[in-house]
Structures are given as structure tokens and as C-alpha cells.
Nucleic acid binder design. Sequence first.
DNA 1: CATACAAATAACTGTTTGGTTCTGTAACTG
DNA 2: CAGTTACAGAACCAAACAGTTATTTGTATG
Lengths: 117, 117
Amino acid sequence: MIDAARLDATFHALSDPTRRAILARLAAEGDITVMDLAEPFEMSQPAISKHLKVLEEAGLVSRGRDAQRRPVHLEAQPLAEATGWLIEYRQYWAAQFGRLDDLLGELQRLEAASGKT
Amino acid sequence: MIDAARLDATFHALSDPTRRAILARLAAEGDITVMDLAEPFEMSQPAISKHLKVLEEAGLVSRGRDAQRRPVHLEAQPLAEATGWLIEYRQYWAAQFGRLDDLLGELQRLEAASGKT
DNA sequence: CATACAAATAACTGTTTGGTTCTGTAACTG
DNA sequence: CAGTTACAGAACCAAACAGTTATTTGTATG
């Protein structure tokens, strides 16, 4: 997937609260089956399967196999790429966002100090 | 706007390459009029206006007034919020993303050392 | 082998998106 | 004040989205 299309898919996947909640649960609880994922949502199982397909096509999750179950696994690489895109704008948050800005300003200095580009 | 809806709007706005390109130009060149923004894109002026409306509703740009012109101004706050959401997942990128991971690992240590929550 | 379970697929529906062209409007300009 | 510039809005369209229910597939298990 070319870079732009990958970012398209990643940001689109993140634009839905159900999908963000799925990622949050995977981060907190590790691999989860579809039924277990669907349980807290007021939504049918096929709806969850569709959301998982969106996440999978964006590379944000992968699927395993455990008998009838297809445990869902978080794949965070696209999140790193999306973060990388956003980090480019850190200088524009200036001032208004004290803590995050402080920390990312520090990050920027470290980046310079490390001599890497 | 409640937090989730705001993230929805921000990530959705970022999921289109034309809109990301608009933000990139605003970051690089400062405020730009609609005509100037539209020029490099193979797209009609109303199409650009629609994209700007999406960006504006997400709080990513604001509009000024200069005679007939409505210069577009980057508002980076939602980008900071989106970055804040993504940063929560930094630990899951581990290892695979040397540089960004190193830097954000450093960030994490600084955060701990600073005693802020 | 019949049944139950987990998940995917199909078919359908209403809404949103991303583009178009045409028209309207506010503000400058000769 | 007639014309032009810069933009927004309306109306339209095809494709994509997000959900539904009903059905199918694959894998145990009694």
C-alpha cells in the first residue's frame, strides 16, 4: 500500500468510536475473540465483524485461529505511522498545550541531540 | 463537542489525502486563500470549499476575512488531541520502530521524571 | 453423524461522502 | 454603476459506510 493510501485507511479506521474502543480493549486486555469483543457493544455480531474488517484492512489488527474462534490481535505499526505524520505538526500546538507540548519539545531537542535525521 | 465526537471529526478529516495536503500547505506557507489553495489540485473550487468545511467543522482550520478573500488558517489544537490519543499506544510499537520508538520511550521517561501525571 | 458454536458472507437499507455544474452574493475596481 | 473576483450554496450523482436480518461455513462435540 502506498503511504498516502495507508494513512487514509488508518485515519479512517480511527474515525469511528467503536473501532477506537476495540483498539483500546485490545491494548488493555490482549487478544480477544469476536464474541467477547461484541459483548459490551449494543451492536450485532456482523457489525463488529465489519468493523474488524476495516481495522484489518488498515493493518491495525490481525486474526489468529483457535478452533472456531478467530482471536483479534492488535498490530500497532500503522499507529506509529499515523503518529509520525502528526508529530510533524508539533511545533504548531505551541504554548497552548503545556504538558504535551513540553514533552514533545523535549522530544524534539533529543531528536536534534541524537544526531539522527 | 464531546471528546469522542471531536476525535471522530479530526480523524475523519485526516483520512483524505487532499485535506492532509491542505494542512501541510498551511503549515508550510501560512494562511492561504481558497483560490490559491485550489490551484495545485485537479479539482473544482467548490470541491475545495467542501474540504475546507470538513476541516473547519473539525476545528482544524479557521477562516479570516480580507476583502473578497477568506484566508484559511491552520488551527492545530485538534492535531494535538489526536496525537495525545495515539501517544497512549506508543508502548505497543515496541522495537520495530527504532527511531520513533526510541524518542517516545525517552519521552515516557521524561514524563515520569517530571513528576507530572 | 447430528447438533451447537463462532464467525463470516449475503442481501438489503438509509445516510454520508466526494465530486460535479450552475447559480448567487459580497466586495473590490474601472 | 457595470463588470470582475472570490467564494459559498444548491442540486444532483455514484460510490462508500454503517447498520440490519438471514444464511452459510468451518470446527468442535455428544
